[in-house]
Design a protein around this nucleic acid. Structure first.
Lengths: 331, 331
DNA sequence: ACCGGCCGAGTAATGGATTACCCAGAGGTC
DNA sequence: GACCTCTGGGTAATCCATTACTCGGCCGGT
């Protein structure tokens, strides 16, 4: 594996000049720079990243820690982050915390150890995990979920309001017993969606009852169980607000198994405009979240903070949009 | 940011002992080791990754370069790779080449520069991209798509056979004009699926005609255009083999727009058992690929190659399974 | 009591790129 | 012609963890 010294020898200059030439420093004679580049090409020289990062005390890499790679919402965020980061020469490495506080902690440690320039994460664990980042002075931005008690940049969706509007829409359509299936206690988006649901009930002077609410992991299987459970009660819901698209899959399966017709017997609104949402029977009314935008904004904030660590922390809240389709229209 | 020296000073030992203690080397007195660990904790010491990697000449990281993060098939592969790699203490960083040879080359360069222990990739670009890896002696494994001319470990799905069986199934169901929408020329899985489709036509003594075949990017939009195009011909297909689930979305949209009833007017089989495939109307017959397994096997091969670089290259081919649902059953 | 061997721990070399610092020489000024 | 300035480029220090090499001291054997 060739090193700067090899390139220097071949080009007949010093290692300092090689480094300066390859990094585009202006204080190098163009002829020499050309000779250096040619020598580097001929040798197939690739700089040693660890050596460079050791010296520079920072890598041109941002880590993106998301809570579920299999959730299209998070992969869309990843696209947004990537596009912005690449524009300015940063690489993005994607880490999947899988909703586990333990894995999240592990990836944060790795990010610190590797001296990445910054971290964007959708927190799965306690705020204390990122306290380490703050302590080290590593720039970070929270996306989708806030970090209570941490004074950091945050990019959120106004999910409580969206949940409220979605629920109000169901009520306006004439559904009487609107239920809600949301994510685990303590996951902020799940709490907020539930709160928005309750807001809407209250505004419509309906009583909210735990009998119509289920909380479970943000996955298909959990929602499937929850839906079966709801359907086996005496008092079954005639409409459901579902907190993400993976859960919608589980709910639709459950309805199918029980012979309950979605949209007719049970109105549905689900978070996330999955590409297939308009294709199921009936087409799903969804709360479309600006996931790509979320990632892009988070990346821009991170870059700004890397450039100026003393910047005051900001909170950006993007709006979600209700897309009405047949699953929430009473026949 | 504390270093080994700081820890050494606090524990009253040498840096060598600190390093040995923290890396669990057996030649350290247990009392000393405990003192070192305590000192490290108290200081919040995190080893400097670049320094460690520089010295070790390798990072305990494997890079996974996939062609599309938004495709569930690839994220399932990622899960498989992660689970296996984490078991043995390796971290996985995910890179999204987005089907671009250019981005793929860039990520391969980064992987080399960062001296990762190995690379797993679903090649989007020419085989020459990975030649660099071979030249440097970095271990790598191709997944989903082979690298022509490269003598490397490969993990594939027998996609040609699967396409043949799927097409044969459509023919057996009585469809007369079976068409095929597949990925771009030169992408091996796309070529193979087309070849399998032709194999089946030939076996059934049918003529295959370009009029029933469309090739486009492996995405929803491309397939949407292709389907509209097929439907506007004089001779329209009465069944379609679709090469992945994103494309299926585009096709289903096109059918909806044209008022063509999926499953009734046009039989459908699509690759990839997306979670929603059973929920659309009619439920989709799919070719289920063992994506998670693909990733897990690739990771195991990579680890084996890291451990023994002289290992002969192997090719593993996994079988796909046809899951029949209503979209391919003639009424 | 003496010696070889072994164990645990310290000293210092090592990895490779960057960059602070320094110097030679070109060009300009009085 | 002496002196100063400026610029391009070289020398060597630096980043920090790991590990080859070395050494003191303890144990057992004779």
């Amino acid at each position: 594996m060739p090193t700067v010294s090899d390139v220097a020898a071949r080009a007949g200059v010093s290692t300092a000049t090689v480094s300066r030439a390859l990094n585009g420093k202006p204080t190098v004679d163009p002829d020499l720079a050309a000779r250096v580049r040619q020598a580097a090409d001929e040798l197939g020289y690739q700089p040693n990243g660890p050596a460079r990062n050791l010296r520079r005390q920072e890598a041109a890499v941002v880590a993106l820690i998301i809570s579920d790679v299999e959730n299209p919402f998070f992969t869309a965020i990843a696209r947004g982050v990537e596009d912005v980061a690449h524009e300015v020469g940063y690489s993005v490495v994607l880490c999947n915390s899988d909703e586990s506080a333990e894995k999240e902690r592990r990836y944060v440690d790795i990010a610190i150890q590797e001296r990445v320039a910054g971290v964007i994460l959708s927190p799965s664990g306690p705020a204390s995990t990122v306290a380490k980042l703050a302590a080290r002075g590593t720039a970070y931005v929270a996306v989708d979920r806030p970090l209570p008690g941490q004074d950091s940049d945050v990019v959120l969706v106004d999910t409580r309001l969206a949940a409220r509007e979605a629920t109000a829409h169901l009520i306006a359509q004439g559904y009487e017993q609107v239920g809600c299936i949301t994510g685990p206690v303590g996951v902020r988006t799940a709490d907020d969606r539930l709160a928005g649901y309750r807001d809407a009930l209250k505004a419509a002077r309906r009583r909210s009852t735990p009998k119509l609410v289920r909380r479970t992991e943000y996955k298909s299987a959990g929602a499937h169980r929850a839906a079966l459970d709801l359907l086996s009660q005496a008092e079954t819901p005639d409409a459901l607000l579902i907190a993400n698209s993976a859960m919608a899959v589980g709910v639709l399966q459950a309805l199918q198994e029980r012979g309950v017709r979605a949209g007719r017997d049970v109105g549905l609104v689900t978070f996330d405009d999955a590409p297939w949402a308009a294709l199921v029977d009936p087409p799903l009314t969804v709360v479309a979240q600006p996931a790509y935008e979320l990632g892009a904004v988070a990346a821009r904030l991170l870059l700004a903070r890397i450039a100026d660590p003393t910047r005051p922390a900001t909170t950006t809240t993007l709006a979600a949009r209700l897309t009405e389709r047949a699953s929430s229209h009473r026949h």
